[in-house]
Every structure is written in structure tokens, then in C-alpha cells.
């Protein structure tokens, strides 16, 4: 399937759906790893919106990326319950150990901040790829990163 076919298939999947833009953007990101700017116009055409409207929606939401992340995304919770259990220090130690900062991509790994994963009673919390981590330590996360990127 060419790139255009993939997008056309996604748009066809959602044809006629009320409020289809977010579901479309999620599917586009799942297919391409990000929402490429050259998708804006075809999406706009399908939903009878302006390109600017689509661009505005993409930029509003933290989830949508304009470039693909590393193959392994590590999300680290920065919110209060995790802070109360040493989350801030945990993030700092992990940053030092991996030699990168939250918000950066190095090799296959992207470190990202997240604001609560609903794991506040087993804080600090993180997510490595699809895997949830409660009572997280930098060592455990490093081991998981090593495991998935091996």
C-alpha cells in the first residue's frame, strides 16, 4: 500500500462519523508514527474543514507528534503523587544514567513527561512502550529499556 492509500483507507474508515477528526488523527499517528503535515490537506478535504483547522487541532493536543518518536517511548509521570514518592529524583537519576533529558530522543529511545497514569497509589509510575511500571526505580526502567531495545 502506498502512503496515500493508507491515508485514504483511514479516511474511508471514518466516513460519515460524527466528530471524526480525533479518531482519524489517532489512526494516522498509529500508521505513520506521527501526523505528517502533508496529511492535513487530504484530511481537511475529507471532513470539509480548512487546512488551518486541522493544523490547529493537531497542535492543540500533546499526543500528536509532527515527527516520529524513537522506537521506544518512555513516559515518566511528573505529577504530584509521583513527586511525593521521589519521582522528581527518580527522573533526574534516570536522565543521568541514560545521558539524556526528558523531551529528548537518543538512538531508539524517547523520554517523555506524562501527567498522571492513574497509578498514584503505587507511585512513582512510568510506562515503557506498552508496559506500565509502578513503584518505579531508575534501575528497573533502565533494565526494561535495555530489554526492549536489545
Amino acid at each position: 500500500m502506498t502512503e496515500d492509500d493508507r491515508l485514504a483507507a483511514i479516511l474511508a474508515d471514518h466516513a460519515g462519523r460524527e466528530g471524526a477528526l480525533l479518531p482519524i488523527l489517532h489512526d494516522v499517528q498509529a500508521a505513520y508514527g506521527c501526523v505528517p503535515a502533508d496529511c492535513y490537506q487530504p484530511i481537511a478535504d475529507a471532513l470539509r474543514l480548512s487546512r488551518a483547522e486541522v493544523a490547529g487541532v493537531v497542535s492543540f493536543y500533546h499526543d500528536f507528534r509532527d515527527a516520529p518518536a524513537g522506537k521506544h517511548v518512555v513516559k515518566l509521570c511528573r505529577a504530584e503523587a509521583c513527586q511525593s514518592m521521589g519521582g522528581t529524583e527518580m527522573i533526574a537519576r534516570l536522565e543521568r544514567a541514560l545521558g539524556m533529558k526528558v523531551g529528548e530522543t537518543k538512538g531508539d529511545v524517547t523520554l517523555e513527561a506524562v501527567y498522571c497514569l492513574g497509578l498514584c497509589a503505587c507511585a512513582p509510575a512510568a510506562m515503557v512502550g506498552d508496559q506500565l511500571v509502578g513503584r518505579a526505580t531508575p534501575e528497573r526502567i533502565e533494565a526494561l529499556v535495555a530489554e526492549v531495545s536489545a
Binding site: P23, L25, F60, Y61, D63
Partner: peptide, 8 residues
């Protein structure tokens, strides 16, 4: 089900 996109 509709899924949000990371906006509090």
C-alpha cells in the same frame, strides 16, 4: 468510546 489526546 472516544479517546482523548493528552490534554488535561
Amino acid at each position: 468510546v472516544r479517546v482523548g489526546a493528552g490534554a488535561y
